[in-house]
Design a protein around this nucleic acid. Structure first.
Lengths: 160, 160
DNA sequence: TATTGTTATACTCTATAACTATA
DNA sequence: TATAGTTATAGAGTATAACAATA
């Protein structure tokens, strides 16, 4: 394994950013993950739904989904089976290439994603509430400029 | 599922913080996770090692480990089996309560954790490098004060 | 009796291999 | 022939149940 060459002037930021991200990861996913568990969905099924939500035209082929999630075709095929059964997605033959299937989230699927996003935002809000006004201000400055400059995908329900 | 009551003045921070954390989670765990995979360790085994590293006296009972990781006793017992085989941890009878076993990381186990931490820091460094000097400055201000004020566990190899 | 840990067993999720249909 | 998807099968990793040892 290779030694990293962390520039000394970045070392403290890197260390503290890592510490904070680890903390937030542990703290702020519970609500969503518990909900997914209660619904009897697997993590792969959650990721599949999320992939569809950000896909061009809100639909993908099974192949594309498998590649995006790092899953084999059989694995993604089974995962989507479950989503189809729950009517969270539809799976239809691609008229342009009848070997291929197009998978798209249903209204119910999109609504579920929104609910899960709301749960995650609620956990994040609880963390943000623990910050002092000064910490909030500083963090908002830093985070907002970084996220907007890079056009990182927003963490928010689609509309409503 | 319940609607979250995100205070409007926090909404933007919450959304952008979530977006950034998701981005960093995806981006900055690859090196470490690939290494764990190459080593043939499961995620539970990684978490078990990490739990030991931050444990009081650097050792825990199997029961404590299972509780900490949300795993059943059989599951954590099996996970530790593998770590013992690889000589990353030792498992010894607790002389005070002979029902119980004390699990402790070996020097090799601690060294492995340090290497994995270095990989994660390297990925974080790569992200930090993409920031402008101004963004770095702002982020360092915010993150450092938050992490130190809460004494969040540092993300750094034990020594060296 | 209660608790810690292990062994036996079943279930879920995954991948590889074999197969079907289409290109 | 090559590719998209499904079905068959085997291997991890998990939990529950049954068990052994100790408290």
């Amino acid at each position: 394994m290779q030694q990293a060459a962390v520039k000394p002037e970045n070392a403290e930021l890197v260390r503290n950013l890592g510490s904070l991200v680890v903390h937030i990861m542990k703290t702020c996913s519970r609500g969503m993950l518990e909900a997914v568990d209660r619904l009897g969905l697997s993590l792969s099924q959650l990721k599949a739904l999320q992939a569809l939500a950000t896909a061009d035209g809100l639909e993908m082929s099974l192949k594309e989904m498998g590649d995006a999630l790092g899953l084999s075709l059989p694995a993604i095929s089974r995962a989507v089976d479950g989503l189809v059964q729950r009517e969270l997605v539809t799976r239809t033959e691609d008229p342009n290439d009848r070997r291929s299937k197009r998978v798209a989230a249903t209204a119910a699927g999109r609504a579920l994603l929104d609910e899960l996003t709301v749960l995650r935002l609620a956990d994040l809000e609880a963390f943000v509430e623990t910050l002092s006004p000064r910490e909030r201000r500083q963090l908002e400055q830093a985070v907002t400029s970084i996220v907007t400059a890079r056009a990182l995908p927003p963490l928010s329900p689609r509309k409503e």
